[in-house]
């Protein structure tokens, strides 16, 4: 899309700057961790939902931003994770078993969904993943015996940690935040490994990549599967957070919002999903008085962004640094 430095790649060369950035990030994380102390339970719930969504958008950023694959089906994986969790947790199965199972199921389904990606061009892929999302939504709505249909599944229990109850909003927030940070750290490490470079090569130029021995089949499938697994994990936390699972949050409109969150933040930038997720989860709540106007403005803002700032919000500093418009 735009010619900008990959920030993970930059991190390899600009170490001193990174150290200052690390301190800043640590301060932001600690401040965010303490924020709910000042908030009522709904505010804390929102902060937790923000973390949960972040897990899904970070996964999507790997698929879309780093590996360059189009996906309009992230909410389907999110939903699969949530339903697996709701059903299994209600059956009394341990959260810590459900978590990897949901991740693995989504990983495998992600592999399968990646197959059309091998056969078709980008824009077709948008339709294929969109179709998959619609299909998953229909199953959630129609298979009442398993999913409870439109009534959903209520009374999903929350996990405990070393015997400590996580039923309290604050305790569950910190638990979720810790999990989110671990997931983000793992993704950061993955993206800095040679795998991350192979994903970027696949995104920038698949034909060249293949001629250099990069197995684009394997990396395309992995990009889908890892992104999907992240959404599955997010779904498990979502089920435990809301304690009620219904089809609505997993409609393809949610996938669309997640994709746009990645683009708004800055596709393929490590902290892009943070900005994007603020825009789709927290801002609408702060700007509640705007009601549906918020989404209307958001939609048109995305159009404007693509025209004037295709690199997303995080590309603004570079824009000033370069002092000229470069696409």
């Amino acid at each position: 899309m735009s010619v900008v430095a990959d920030d993970v790649a930059l991190a390899r060369t600009r170490r001193p700057l990174l150290r200052t950035a690390n301190i800043a990030i640590a301060i932001v994380v600690v401040a965010f961790a303490l924020l709910p102390l000042l908030l009522k339970s709904y505010g804390t719930y929102l902060c937790t939902l923000f973390c949960v969504t972040l897990m899904a958008t970070y996964g999507l950023n790997l698929t879309v931003g780093y590996a360059g694959q189009m996906s309009l089906g992230q909410a389907a994986f999110y939903g699969i994770g949530a339903y697996i969790a709701a059903i299994a947790l209600k059956a009394g199965i341990s959260f810590y078993l459900v978590l990897p199972v949901a991740a693995i199921v989504c990983f495998v389904v992600g592999l399968l969904i990646g197959f059309p990606a091998l056969r078709v061009q980008h824009h077709y892929l948008a339709f294929a993943t969109l179709g998959f999302n619609i299909l998953v939504y229909l199953v959630m709505r129609n298979e009442e015996k398993i999913t409870g249909g439109t009534y959903g599944i209520s009374g999903v229990p929350r996990p405990t940690l070393f015997g400590l109850s996580l039923d309290g909003v604050l305790a569950f927030f910190w638990f979720t935040l810790a999990a989110t940070l671990i997931l983000i750290a793992l993704l950061g490490w993955l993206l800095r490994s040679p795998w991350g470079r192979a994903f970027a090569a696949l995104r920038d130029n698949p034909i060249r990549a293949e001629s250099l021995g990069i197995n684009i089949t394997v990396y395309t499938l992995l990009a889908f599967a890892i992104g999907a697994a992240c959404a599955g994990i997010a779904g498990v936390f979502f089920a435990a957070l809301v304690q009620f699972v219904e089809p609505a949050p997993f409609h393809f409109a949610a996938s669309l919002m997640m994709l746009l969150a990645i683009i708004v933040g800055g596709s393929g930038r490590f902290f892009g999903p943070v900005i994007g997720t603020v825009v789709i989860v927290l801002l609408p709540e702060w700007l509640r008085f705007m009601q549906n106007w918020y989404l209307a403005i958001f939609g048109f803002a995305v159009v404007a962004l693509m025209i004037w700032l295709p690199g997303g919000v995080l590309s603004i500093p570079e824009r000033f640094a370069l002092g000229k418009v470069r696409r």
Partner: peptide, 22 residues
């Protein structure tokens, strides 16, 4: 193709919600 796909996705949300809100 992709920037236009994204922009038209945004347009889709924008038009839909504009009708709903307005």
């Amino acid at each position: 193709v992709i920037p236009l796909v994204i922009a038209s996705l945004g347009l889709s949300i924008g038009l839909k919600q504009l009708m709903r809100a307005g």
